[in-house]
Design a protein around this nucleic acid. Sequence first.
RNA 1: GCCCCUUUAGCUCAGCUGGUAGAGCAGCGGACUCUUAAUCCGUAGGUCGAGUGUUCGAGCCACUCAGGGGGCACCA
Length: 589
Amino acid sequence: MPAHPELDPATVAGTVLERNTLMLQRLTKAKALHDRGESAYANDFAPTHTAVQALQWFQAEPTHLAPFVALEVGKPLDPERLPPTGAPIVQTARVKMAGRAMAINVKGKVAFVRVQDRTAAQVPALRKAENLLRVACGLPEREADTPTFQFYFSRDDDPETFDRLFKPSPDAAWEGPLCDVGDIIGGEGLWFRTRTGEQSLWLKPFDGRPALRVLTKSVRPLPDKFHGLADKETRLRQRYVDLVMNPEVREIFRKRSQVLAGVRRFLDERGYIEVETPMMHALLGGAAARPFRTHHNALDMPLYLRIAPELHLKRLVVGGIERVYEINRNFRNEGLSQRHNPEFTMLEFYRAYATFFDLMDEVETLIAQLAQEVCGTTEVVWGSDKQGAPRQISLAAPFARVRIKDGLVQWGGIAADQVGDEGVLRRRAAELGVHIDAHAPLGKVQVELFEAVAERHLIQPTFVWEYPAETSPLARRNDADPSVVDRFELFVGGIEISNAFSELNDPQDQYLRFEHQLSQRAKGDEETMDLDEDYVRALEYGMPPAAGCGIGIDRLVMLLTGAEAIREVILFPHMRPEATTPEVAASDS
RNA sequence: GCCCCUUUAGCUCAGCUGGUAGAGCAGCGGACUCUUAAUCCGUAGGUCGAGUGUUCGAGCCACUCAGGGGGCACCA
């Protein structure tokens, strides 16, 4: 066996890898395992069952609900080893289970180890389900919150392994307790239920194999098992620790995965094709936002990380992909908040021969269906009202539909015949302390005032529509009123989830609107689009009438998981770089 | 970019009006053959985010910087 590799403490001093006393102890234990010829990083153990599978087995048979003693299938009863409890004996099969040791409780010559595996997040629900059964059978309810499964290890069954892993022995260096909380362990044995009723794996040495093995030595101690990981910074910077300590966080990301799968299934079934368009753009377009800039060395040209995929997707509609979608990241160089991350995941889909009204129907169907799939209901709880009471949101279709102008009247205190009077709107904004840029055109004034007065009322899902043309350079004008465009935004819980419109496919109008953007930029607007001549050329070939929609996936996942901050639904949210030493921090400035 | 709060042992947190560092858990040693935040006894563990200043004396006061949180601005 090759020598156990060891880092020179001097090379890691002053870095995050610097060793404290606890880590040095564990590193010594890892070396002790190695010196015994057992790898501290073994990969030759294949578990046969998960915690959830184990609990399902216990639940399946009424005789497994009360304490019982295990006897291996096919083995004769050993009268010498009968349990003193008088508990019934059940024949069970050999099982191998593995996971992370989350608590070790050595009590004399028995040890209990709580193990957490990949199914941890589903374990409490299963325990609760069992409690219903127990009540029906007249048995007492059991604690259901723990996400772990228990290993039971009696010294009598394998004294050598027991002592090595759990018993101190001052004679030899680290022949003592080699197993720590945090280690990845694998155990083999029989399922049984302890005298106190806990579902457990009774560890046994089969065919000369040790009953329990340390598969991966954890040399860095986990947070306090009772208080857990409370520090928000560590939770987000070291998401791996967060996921270990908080299985419910894993559940959020399992649901996120379900949302993405559900969206794809929904669109695929309707004949949409998923595509991937460039993330690096030479021109800025598709949304109004400040970009991240980068540089291509070989071509010596500036590039932007995309702020939206819209213009590329509509080129594909021109090319005949009449139903098309993309789920991917957008990048916007803006502040961080509870609702904003610089990179976020956006679904955009485009459908030829459809209007924005058709997309309202499609979006409400999609969201209601996702809620049903992911939450099992369309009635979700998200955020809280002013009194702090949880807010009920119904995602059942159909959703409410409100015009911008109606909102100004209903919530803004504007008379119905004055919603087009810029002076009135600006005075009202000033009264409310809402800042609106002095150069903003009427349409922008209407939208800004609307958002200031109405958004907080849009708790239940609401499509807001009849947006003014000035703020929507890519949307189709309304046939009856050319001052507005056929566009909606969907608000839920007071935040914007979706933005959609009937697409502008008149190349002349599109060119003029791009030119208008350039004139706005000349006036100092920092969030204008570039004039994309190739996109206008594409429209000149003819884009079928179409409507397109964008949905913020992160925010949708927030709604469906109850998360109130976008960081909770992004595995690695953007943070400042970690300053490990004062020197590093100083050299950055 | 602005304002407020925050940073103490591996983790969670105390620390009074400025007087020289505390607890629980984890660790290490001991007892314990059905525990589940096990219990009991013993023991060890600290550059109080970094720096400067005030002071006889700073975890505590002042200033600067950094990280984190919240809010504002920005984000159609």
